[in-house]
Amino acid sequence: MRASDVISIGDLAARTGVAVSAIRFYEAKGLLHPYRNAGGQRRFLRSDIRRLSFILIAQQLGLSIEAIGIELAKLPDGRTPNAADWKRISKAMRVLLDARIAQLARTRDRLDDCIGCGCLSLASCALYNPEDRAAARGAGPRYVLGDEAPGEPVCRSGG
């Protein structure tokens, strides 16, 4: 490995605009894998600039650290990922993004009148979610998450 193939944590921070403390956090979470030089200092491959950029983009898209780690684990260690490597990641990311887009669209479409169990109106809850049927599907805003059962009306009461 040539000296020009590696950069210090400070150089990585300067190049990406990410604080050194955040880089150490991503390392602790297993998203980045620097090695230590003879003096014990962290050294990163130049390809870690792309990995860190991917982390930032994925976080902006709402992916968890765990989900980002799963995707990054598909990349090779010790070499710069090539176009085929990134294409594999991109394919998996499309599935995640499509699901996120669908969830955001449902939320947008129901935001004015349906959240949580299915509506903002306690009077309408008695009609559209009697005895809190949505709770049987799990925690959270079940209708917004897409758990609407066929034939089950969703409140459009407007509160």
Results as ranks from 00 to 15, higher is better:
117 C>T: 08
30 G>R: 12
6 V>F: 12
149 A>N: 05
28 A>W: 06
66 E>H: 10
125 C>G: 09
126 A>C: 14
136 A>P: 04
10 G>H: 10
108 R>C: 11
85 D>W: 08
93 M>Q: 15
157 S>E: 11
87 K>G: 10
137 R>K: 12
136 A>K: 14
55 I>E: 02
113 D>E: 07
65 I>P: 00
98 D>E: 08
152 E>Y: 12
46 R>K: 15
99 A>V: 13
123 A>M: 13
12 L>P: 00
153 P>W: 14
93 M>D: 07
82 N>H: 07
67 A>K: 09
20 V>P: 00
121 S>K: 10
49 I>W: 10
138 G>S: 11
49 I>S: 07
27 E>M: 09
146 G>Q: 01
57 I>H: 03
81 P>E: 08
156 R>W: 01
22 A>L: 07
41 Q>P: 01
80 T>I: 14
123 A>Q: 15
104 L>K: 02
49 I>E: 10
37 N>L: 05
36 R>V: 03
101 I>V: 15
102 A>D: 12
11 D>C: 13
76 P>G: 13
55 I>Q: 02
75 L>T: 02
116 G>H: 03
71 E>A: 15
74 K>M: 08
30 G>S: 12
89 I>V: 10
84 A>N: 09
29 K>Q: 14
47 S>W: 10
96 L>W: 14
42 R>K: 02
